[in-house]
Computed example of a mutant assay.
Amino acid sequence: MKFVIVTILFVTISNTTGVYDQNSTVKEIDVLRQIINQETLIRLALVKDVRSLVDEVSSMNRTMTSTETMTSTLQHTVETMKRQLNILTQENKKIARNYQKSILEFDQKLTSLSENVTSIHQYLKNMYWQDLRRDVDCEGLYNSGHRQSGVFRINPYGNESQINVYCDMKMNGGGWTAIQKRKRGAVEFNRTWSEYKEGFGDPQDSYWIGNDVIHHLTKGRNSTLYVSITLPNDTVLYEMYGQFSISDEEDKYRLFLGEWVDGTLGDGMLHTGKEYADLSGMYFSTPDRDNDNGNIDCAVKEQGGWWFNNCHQAYLNGPWSESWTNPWVPAGLYHYTDVKETLMMIHPH
């Protein structure tokens, strides 16, 4: 456009002046060339700028297209996540309902189980107390089916205080409870009042069951007393009394003996023919508790506990030494060397 205008202007000037010299014309042409060159440069710059703008627009279009694609992808992802979240929410609700149902069922089962445990506990408790009442002595154990002699636990007090005792399940129908048992002096019997009260020794070998236990086993019951002495040659001599019991500690464990039955030892406790030697009605004495009828302290002299009168013709708790005299006079047993074992057992009837 600018070139045309310059040409027209040049022609017009030429027509007006009519004459141009050659130098002027050359100069003018040079000017025009410069103008044209500048115009060309401007056009080239404009084309470059336009191309650059076109590139930028194309780039922006591509960017927008990419952005739109990303936006579309993100929207699709969001929609997918929404659907998945909705599915998870529904599943969680279902799980929560099932969990609540399971908790309720578990709670019901737990309640039922607790009731069953309570019932079983009560049943076992009843059975336990029945066993305790039944196994008050060896007779109860025998009635429970025990047939082998040995050490068992019994409950003479009717509560949870069980003790170990020796039970003879063979002799005379079985169910005999040993209250005294000695073998060759294995256990010292020169003991205090408290020790004779509580009991001492080992039921399997040698022991005294305890005066409290003897009282609880015999109070309010008819019991038979069996006494035996094994000689050094293993001969067993015995004596049996149809009534035997002792009182409580407050009454000093007084001995009540009656109804001699039979035996091979001879009566050395009930009707001895010696007033000083009959033992029924006598209090129990120990070296630290003198309750006998004599002027001397029989328990100190005889070094052990017994139902001394003044003093005795039968005494099974003496020291296994020369100090033990007259274990059982009616049988001719005057020294500890005459005795290998002793045994005192009771049985309710």
Rank of each mutant, 00 (worst) to 15 (best):
D292M: 06
L333R: 01
E105W: 12
G150Q: 00
D212W: 05
T89P: 00
Q90P: 04
G332E: 03
R33T: 14
K181D: 01
S245H: 09
N164A: 15
I229F: 03
E198A: 14
T25S: 12
F284N: 08
S144E: 13
Q148V: 07
P330D: 04
M282N: 13
R33Y: 10
V136W: 04
Q180K: 10
L41R: 14
S59M: 09
K183I: 05
T235D: 00
N190R: 08
V11D: 08
S245F: 08
S321C: 03
R33L: 13
W193M: 06
T69P: 00
D267M: 11
E195G: 08
A186Y: 01
R33N: 15
W328D: 06
V227G: 00
R191T: 04
W129L: 05
S52Y: 12
M344L: 15
V300Q: 14
R147G: 02
S114C: 07
S24Q: 10
K301D: 10
I120E: 08
L237E: 04
L53R: 11
I35G: 11
V19G: 06
P348H: 06
G150I: 02
N310D: 03
P319I: 00
G268F: 05
K170Q: 12
G18D: 06
L85H: 14
D131L: 08
E160K: 07
L41A: 15
V227R: 00
N291F: 03
Q130N: 11
M70K: 13
N293T: 04
V261A: 12
R51P: 00
L237V: 02
R191E: 07
N15L: 13
I42W: 13
W176H: 05
M240H: 01
M127R: 11
S66E: 14
S112L: 05
Q84F: 13
N155T: 02
V50N: 15
H271E: 15
L53H: 09
M81C: 09
S245W: 12
Y157T: 01
D297I: 07
D137Q: 07
I246D: 11
M127Q: 07
D202G: 05
L104Y: 10
K48L: 13
P348C: 01
D205W: 02
E56W: 09
L316A: 03
S14R: 10
V57K: 09
D168K: 08
G273V: 11
N295H: 02
N98A: 15
T325F: 01
V50L: 15
T73R: 08
M240W: 03
V136S: 15
D205E: 09
T80P: 03
K340F: 00
N159M: 06
S280P: 09
